[in-house]
């Protein structure tokens, strides 16, 4: 992670490609979760490992620039997502965490199912990514 050696070049180029693929796949897994294997947990873990791969190839500073998130905050944001999805249904007089879904016609995508479980799952996703990376980076950065 510290010094550039010639064969790091290979690693970095291939890693960029691989990471992109993993990212895309993790996002697919996350969205597919409602109907196929996948979902917030799996998508989140996949994203976390993609970012970890990046860390293996590049040094800390580069990544901090490329992914300007604070992962600890991400946990909080994720939790808020989950809670607000729950509270939202209460505003309409339904119990906490009651979910809704319906099918809509969109010009390009055709019929698409939209569900309130998705923002909830997004919360799960964010918490998982945030927690996994927070834990690992906390140790990795503690080089004393």
């Amino acid at each position: 992670m510290k010094q550039m050696r010639p064969n790091d070049m290979m690693l970095q180029v291939s890693m960029r490609l691989i990471t992109l693929i993993i990212f895309a796949f993790s996002f697919y897994l996350f969205l597919a979760g409602h109907n196929n294997p996948g979902g917030g947990f799996i998508g989140g873990l996949m994203t976390a490992s993609a970012i970890l791969v990046l860390y293996l190839a590049f040094d800390m500073k580069t990544i901090k620039k490329a992914i300007p998130f604070n992962f600890t905050t991400m946990i909080g944001v994720g939790l808020l997502f989950a809670v607000f999805t729950g509270v939202a249904s209460m505003l309409f007089g339904f119990p906490f965490l009651k979910h809704f879904f319906d099918y809509f016609q969109f010009p390009i995508f055709g019929e698409v199912e939209l569900t309130t479980a998705l923002p909830f799952d997004l919360g799960v996703y964010l918490v998982v990514v945030g927690a996994a990376l927070t834990i690992i980076l906390a140790i990795a950065e503690d080089d004393k």
Partner: peptide
């Protein structure tokens, strides 16, 4: 997922 959280917590505690 919880086991992951607990294990990592213990690990860091050991560390």
């Amino acid at each position: 997922v919880i086991a992951f959280g607990v294990t990592s917590f213990l690990l860091v505690m050991a560390y």
